[in-house]
Design a protein around this nucleic acid. Structure first.
Length: 283
DNA sequence: ATGTGTTCCTGTCCGC
DNA sequence: TGCGGACAGGAACACA
């Protein structure tokens, strides 16, 4: 599933075909995503112009000329596919309809945006633009990790007294919004912190390393167009390439890439999810 | 309040 | 080639 860098990459890919464009036609193939699609979704979207396409955490937010905002979350397997438009130097013809194409937006000008999600853990909703930040799914989100609200003092306060693991604390979107399994593992390695340490036991000096480690990991991933594992694609169909820069994720048994480190990457399960780390770098 | 486990759903991969 | 089980980028929810 797309984490923050993948969602940001999708947003950038959608910008040229969505922002400032009018939605000409909408087809809903199945409304039962993670939550039921909002009432009369197709009617409420048709004819609206997308004034802006933003991102909050892992949500895409399309502000419409109708004063509503379309919220989109890609869950684990959601994709936004663009066809019928000149993207970069290639023209993408409309592909044959896919088994999991749930919502299709035909934009004025010929571009088609297809929301495809095999597992249907993704969601869409509509909310008034003026109050979308107070939507129940957005209201409790922590600060953007690349924004000014995310800093050592914030994380220290959120971690203080917490017995839960630092891995779980970073996955908790209330503490910081947009991280997922890949980038938490990668950032903890860069900061030299074992994922099973109690959040409350992470020292101030370590938090001072962790904050920039999170930022750098996300910035580098965005610059690489995200990570392409299994079926994740950018909106333009191209693959991101940050997966080649993973230092620990999915590298069980392989050598640690830190300079001069002879460690081998290990994998443990935390809360039913895998964590990878180097026992030498992350004691 | 906090921490943990379960659940949603489909696809892929690996070992037998 | 088939089959069963593990696992997958998320996060809401139920329960101790």
């Amino acid at each position: 599933m797309p984490e923050l860098p993948e969602v940001e990459t999708v947003r950038r890919g959608l910008l040229p075909v969505m922002e400032g464009r009018r939605i000409g036609a909408v087809r809903v193939n199945r409304p039962d995503l993670r939550f039921a699609l909002p009432e009369r979704l197709a009617e409420r979207l048709t004819g609206a112009t997308v004034n802006a396409l933003r991102r909050r955490s892992k949500y895409l937010l399309a502000d419409l000329s109708t004063d509503e905002t379309l919220m989109i979350h890609l869950g684990m397997s959601g994709r936004m596919l663009v066809s019928g438009a000149l993207i970069g130097q290639f023209h993408h013809d409309h592909p044959a309809p896919g088994r999991h194409d749930h919502v299709v937006l035909d934009m004025d000008g010929g571009a088609r945006i297809t929301y495809n999600d095999a597992r249907r853990f993704g969601m869409m909703d509509l909310a008034p633009t003026a109050s979308v930040e107070r939507h129940p799914l957005l209201a409790g989100l922590g600060p953007e990790p690349l924004g000014n609200g995310f800093h050592e003092g914030h994380l220290a306060a959120r971690f203080m007294g917490r017995a839960t693991s630092v891995k779980a604390a970073l996955l908790d979107q209330r503490n910081v919004a947009g991280l997922g399994n890949i980038y938490v593992c990668e950032a903890l390695h860069r900061a030299g912190i074992h994922p099973a340490r109690a959040a409350g036991a992470v020292r101030a000096g370590e938090i001072a390393l962790l904050v920039p480690a999170i930022r750098a990991t996300l910035e580098e991933a965005i610059a690489a167009g995200g990570s392409s594992l299994r079926d994740y694609r950018r909106a333009d169909g191209e693959l991101g390439y940050f997966q080649h820069a993973f230092r620990v994720y999915g590298r069980e048994g392989e050598s640690c890439l830190a300079p001069g480190c002879a460690g081998r990457i290990e994998r443990i399960a935390q809360g039913g999810r895998s964590s990878w780390f180097c026992p030498q770098c992350q004691p």
